[in-house]
Computed example of a mutant assay.
Amino acid sequence: MSLVNRFLKPTKLVVPVSVKGVWKQTRNRSLVEVWIFLLLSLPVSAFVGESASFPRLLSELRMTSKSEQPLSLGIISFDLDDTLFSTNAVIRDANQAMLEKMRRHGVHVQEEDFMDVTRHIRRSMDGPITYTSLRKMTIAQILSMTNVSSKEDCDALVDECFDVWLHERHRAAERHLFPQTLNCLSTLKEMYPDVCFAAITNGRGNPLYMPTLANFFDFCVSGEDDGVFPERKPAPGIYEASLSKYKDLYPHHDHDSRIWIHVGDCLVNDVGASANVGAYAVWLSGQADAVVPKWSTATTSEQNARQLKEEDGREKIAVRISCLSELPAAVLDLVGGAMQPVPLNSLS
């Protein structure tokens, strides 16, 4: 049995586009009215039973209009942390590698103490800062309390410690992939060989530096990239940068007839933010812990603001899945019922 057949099982879908959503996403009001009329004309059996699928239903209705061009998948993008792998486990391993490097240079510090210094630095700053700069500032402050001989030696050791951390972050991500990650990506690649696969992350993880994942992805955009920071999630800038890169890498795609699907675990950073830029947002709800992770440096006000935005994100879920094994079938249904192309023509 092929990977595609093995994964294409019925999946629980929420309605990806409500009547309200159709109204928002469709420029032609009369077309919306036609769809509503056709929906009301259908028998109840079209909406219930194992074979019922709202996205496929919308696809069939769309094809009744000769002027509508069928849409196909152009780009599928993934969040990384707590979507493809466990962030808590990855950061724990990376931190331990970094702290061991510091111990070999006579600097003994516990992980919780390191994080306390990190939070103190973060909360003393008014403006945005990259995670890379924040971590290096923490290392430097801890080293400044030791007997490092000179500033040059200290700066060099800061870079060495950070490089150890980043290297282990990538190795640990491969060790802590969720069980269905590789099979899911393999299946999607088999289903959509000419589709762009992208990673969109606020952090420093990059699947192109992970041999296990590298062959699945065309590119990775980070919130720390030049030209993106400080427009990291949930700001639209990071998503617009990703779509521009897709357009450059896939010029042969008819972008007016392609849709974009984004997959992530965060209602704010992934679901709400990507939907605001035009994506069909798939919420992976079953992977991450509900509590604020201990490695987080977010302030209390930032955490409270995030909670308020979560309700807005819930209203923009196209599909909710509990694990990655459900994703191929969900993508198939979304593509079958898609009405909104990638909004590339509005980008510079």
Rank of each mutant, 00 (worst) to 15 (best):
L284W: 02
Q180I: 01
L157V: 04
I129H: 07
L61N: 02
R104G: 09
N345C: 12
K24T: 07
A318C: 02
D256T: 12
S242N: 06
G223S: 05
L267G: 04
N276D: 13
K66E: 12
L344E: 03
T26R: 14
V271E: 05
I261S: 02
G286M: 07
N28H: 12
W260L: 04
A89V: 01
R29G: 04
P207N: 08
S59Q: 14
R27D: 11
A172C: 04
T87S: 11
D153K: 13
V335C: 09
E100L: 11
G313N: 05
M115Y: 03
Y280M: 06
H176F: 15
G264A: 10
R204I: 00
I129N: 02
P341G: 00
L185H: 10
S124I: 09
H253T: 04
T300R: 14
I200W: 12
N345H: 15
L243G: 01
L347I: 12
G264Q: 00
E174Q: 15
S346P: 13
T11Q: 14
F47Q: 14
H108A: 14
V4I: 15
A97Q: 09
F178R: 04
N95F: 10
R204C: 09
L249G: 01
T299Q: 07
V117S: 02
D194R: 03
K9N: 13
V109P: 14
H253E: 02
S2P: 15
G278V: 05
S59P: 01
R232A: 13
N215A: 11
A290V: 09
L208K: 11
M1N: 10
S296I: 04
T132M: 07
A214V: 02
K245I: 11
L284T: 10
E174Y: 01
V195N: 08
H105L: 06
E310V: 03
H253Y: 00
F47E: 15
V292S: 02
L73W: 05
E68G: 09
C196D: 00
L334Q: 07
Q303M: 15
L284K: 14
I91M: 09
M98W: 07
L213V: 06
S285R: 15
G237H: 12
S67E: 15
D153I: 01
I259S: 03
K20G: 15
L344P: 01
W35C: 10
E224I: 02
H105Y: 08
V331P: 07
K24L: 09
L185I: 07
A89K: 08
P207C: 06
C266G: 06
F219W: 11
H255P: 03
G21W: 05
R27N: 14
E50P: 15
A235E: 13
E224N: 01
Q303S: 10
R122A: 01
P193K: 13
W35G: 10
